[in-house]
Design a protein around this nucleic acid. Sequence first.
DNA 1: CTCGATAATAAGTATAGACATAATTATCCA
DNA 2: TGGATAATTATGTCTATACTTATTATCGAG
Lengths: 230, 230
Amino acid sequence: MDRTVTWQAIRAEALRRIRAGTWPPGARIPDEAELATELGCARATVNRALRDLAEAGLLERKRKGGTRVPVTPVRKATFDIAIIRQNVEERGQRHGYRLIDDAPRPPPPEVCATLDWPAGPPMRHVIALHLADDRPFCLEDRWLNPAVAPPVQAEFTSVSANEWLVRNVPYSDGTIGFTARPADTQAARWLDCAEGDALLAIERTTRTEAAPITFVRLTYAPGHRVDATL
Amino acid sequence: MDRTVTWQAIRAEALRRIRAGTWPPGARIPDEAELATELGCARATVNRALRDLAEAGLLERKRKGGTRVPVTPVRKATFDIAIIRQNVEERGQRHGYRLIDDAPRPPPPEVCATLDWPAGPPMRHVIALHLADDRPFCLEDRWLNPAVAPPVQAEFTSVSANEWLVRNVPYSDGTIGFTARPADTQAARWLDCAEGDALLAIERTTRTEAAPITFVRLTYAPGHRVDATL
DNA sequence: CTCGATAATAAGTATAGACATAATTATCCA
DNA sequence: TGGATAATTATGTCTATACTTATTATCGAG
């Protein structure tokens, strides 16, 4: 006997009308006050529902302009960014970790450019392998600002830099992008594939307001797929 | 002279406290009523702010359990799914389009499986090339349910299937995923690269409640990068 | 001491009313 | 006619209040 109309119900009804063509692409839909009356709820409830649809790219809203169904909608897809160990464990596999290299080096020009790092001074360059059920899962190639790096004792031998950062310098801003790369000698060796094999890579930069933190490229084993949801 | 406290201000303050460690990972933060009093606004305003942070993965909220800062946060990244022409034009380039093949064929087993399509009957198989400033941009390899395909005259010669679908069967559900693939003969030929080159591919399935609509693999030219935002 | 019913709690949400703000439209003057 | 200005309007947001719901904590019975 629930009598109140929820915003989810309003959203579902609006989505139904969009899909059914009751509100065709390009059309302006009734304003919030009208819909509130028609559907028997408060305007705030309609607002919540339509705002949610707008965030997903299914409606366009403008003050005074009203709400309309976009002609060529730009949908939003989202995917989760967890620590790698979690990714592996979610697949029901056992996570393994192996540090390959950890040394100070001046980063290559591309890394300097994306991180706003001067050409001269070294960063901490960490390379590590993540395993899923003892099979190579992903190669972590990271450039780390030594100023935010952990104290000496934390050597990334047992805890990955990935995890250390999430636990110690979390909630920072940054960018993220997908590319495909041919396996270089190192990737081929550790990911157990042939040189030149097509590998999915995720590149992330992370920074605080003041200083860059890290650039990391996660190169996944052949066949890996990253799923997103609409 | 704005006197009212906005939910964005509350969110910014909460984010500041998270980053500053005032609210350390794992800790439970004051409840909405308390924060409302402290920050001088209504509880609904606090709710809006904290809900927004929770949606981004920066807070975890449970009824009765309260709100806490996650120890290993799962951040959400989003990226836009527009029609390909829009993608190209956003880069300041001219979009070109060329239909390569369009014929009915029984889809391969993988496609049948992901789309819930029986093994026997054919689907419409459309292959097309998208160009950016006359250079190959992305190869569209699509399997289309003939029942939702356009009438005969729309032959995908001038309007891409991508665009036709967005305009005619929009707002449908589906899945989306990223992979890396070696260029096959066809991809190498049309994307102007060598066979075996590493190419980024986006695979999408689209369906209505009742029936599958389409499976498409968009294989991008070498070096392509898809950016997301945190 | 465990099981299960019950109470307490914090988030989730609905509502009516008010005001703010950005766009658009109408108006008026030069 | 052009352009600045004012009125209008739909969304955006805040508030106070009330009720709902999931979850935890508590307490009593067996």
